[in-house]
Structure formats: C-alpha cells, structure tokens
Design a protein around this nucleic acid. Structure first.
Lengths: 150, 150
DNA sequence: CGGTTTTCTTGACTCATTCAAGTTAATCGC
DNA sequence: GCGATTAACTTGAATGAGTCAAGAAAACCG
C-alpha cells in the first residue's frame, strides 16, 4: 500500500466509512482525473479493479459527497462530474458544447457577491459560481460543423 | 388584444419568430408565474387555451430561450425552470428539497469575482451564481419528516 | 472466528427531455 | 383575400442519467 492509498484509507476511516476496494479505487482514480463523470469513473475503476458495478460507483460517490471527501458538480444538461475536495475555493468553467470542465481561481479572495441580501427564508449552505462558454475544441468544431464528444 | 399581448407580439416579431397562440400564451403566463417548470407552464397554458401539447411547450420555451426572450434555469436534480428575461442581473436561490427558486439581487453592482483570471481557452459568455439551501417550507418539513412537493 | 451492519451486485424502473414523422397554421408574394 | 412556402404543433416512441429494491458479499467489532 503506497502513501496515497494509506492517506485515502485514513480519510475514509476518519469519516466513519468502511474501507473497501471500490472506495479506494474510486478516490485514487479521481485524484488523477478531476471532473470525471460517473461513466468515466466506472470505466477507469473497472480497468483497474477488473470488476465493479456502475451502481457501486454511484454509491461510493454519493457516500463520499456526503462525507465531504468529494465534490459534485452538476452542469445543466450534462451528466454530473466529481472531483476530490481540496478545500480551496475555486470555481468552474463549463463548456456548453461537451460539458468539459476547467478550474478557475477566484479573482478576489473574498467574494462580496456571494452573500445574498435577501434570503427569502432560505437556509443557505452553498454558493456556486459557474462560468459558461465554449472550450477551445468546441469552438473550432462549431466552425467546422462537427460534434464533439468529450 | 390588451397592451401586454401587443407587447409580446412585437417582441416575437422583433426576433423573427412567428406569432402563434401557443407562444403568446406561454410568454404571457410566464409574466405572472416566474420560475415555472415545463409542466407548470403546460398546465397553465392548457387551462387558458384549452389545447396545447407538452412538446409545444418545450418547443416554444426552447425557441424563446434561443431568442433571449426567456431565461432557462436548470437546478441540479430538478426539472428546468423558466422566467421572462428582464435584463436585470439577479441571481437565484435554489431549494435542495423541492427545487423552488427565489430571486436575489447582487450585493454589488459590479461583481469582481465574475471575470475569471484564466480562461483555459474558453470563450466565456455567461457567469452564473446559484445559492443552494433549504426553503422555509422544506426546513420545517425536514424537521417533521414530511416530504414536500412544490 | 461468528454476528452484525454496511456495501456491492443485478436488474427493473422513473422521469425529464429529445427525436421523428406527419399535420396544421403563419407569413409572404400575388 | 388567396394559395404556396415554411415554420410550428401534435402524437407517440425513444433516450439516458439517475434511482429503487432485494438479495449476496465483505468490513468491522467483540
């Protein structure tokens, strides 16, 4: 068991989650593949472990999101994407064409816009900033009329 | 034809869209029902017109979104919602429980956070801010263990 | 090691949304 | 106003991400 695997094991234990092969593989895989979809995680872990069900990936990711080990991003009209939670408060660029996601740092450390004046009785737990646009690949494909699959 | 209906007719013409009963009814209905789902629009317009298909509502809304007469909001895990485009740059509070949406104004007129430093080759056209939380109704229902349908 | 509880597997199901083919109705030129 | 053209609408089937449910497997605790 290498260092990273040990660290992941500890993280799981610290949140009271059982340590399973599926969980270790999913978390380890996410480190090298940020913003992955369920399908991508499934295929990646399948190749590594040899066997896992799609449902298990859903379960693992859902448990890890609840335990705040993983952050879930759900861009409109595209399947959800997942990334290891790093604690830094970065935002996301989402491509309207292929759903690809890129990280972007906040210009200002403290974002004044992120505390709404009127909360309408809402109990707010998260502010989310998403920048929409077209990634480089989709820009050129749009010109040539080709569709992109990410 | 009242003033509002006339205004809607002009707006449609101005964007090169044909003026149909369905489009007028959908747009008119949205004025009094912001953040409506497709289903809600469908039922509302059905009651008013007597006949319309769900698909027509999808088509009308999609055409109006393209023509920038309507703004579409797609909260994760909830059906899309629609509102007349007013030009003001307000943001949305979304309830995790029932998907209900409330408007909130930006604290600052100019949002420094909304121009990402590094664009990774993306051509950015929109910045979106969403506040996630629980609305008043879902807060009390969560305490009493009841589910809410909005 | 055995019991308990969580997690994983399999497969069916949901539901918003999209697709496709054919019909209807706005708009344009006459 | 009236037919031709083209955009919209109707109907019904299909898609696909995600969820649910029941039973099997495997972590963890003592």
């Amino acid at each position: 068991m290498n260092n990273q695997t040990t660290a992941i094991t500890e993280e799981l234990r610290a949140r009271g989650l059982r340590v399973t092969a599926a969980r270790r593989a999913v978390l380890e895989w996410l480190v090298s593949h940020p913003h992955a979809t369920v399908e991508q995680v499934y295929l990646g872990v399948l190749r590594q472990l040899g066997t896992i069900s799609r449902q298990a990936v859903y379960d693992v990711l859902s448990a890890c999101v609840d335990a705040e080990l993983v952050r879930q991003i759900k861009p409109s009209g595209h399947p959800a994407r997942f990334e290891r939670r790093t604690g830094d408060n970065h935002h996301h660029l989402v491509c309207r064409g292929c759903g690809r996601i890129a990280d972007t740092d906040c210009h200002t450390s403290h974002a004044p816009c992120l505390s709404p004046s009127h909360d309408h009785g809402f109990e707010i737990d998260q502010a989310e900033v998403v920048f929409w646009g077209l990634c480089a690949a989709c820009q050129s494909n749009e010109r040539s009329g080709v569709d992109t699959v990410n």
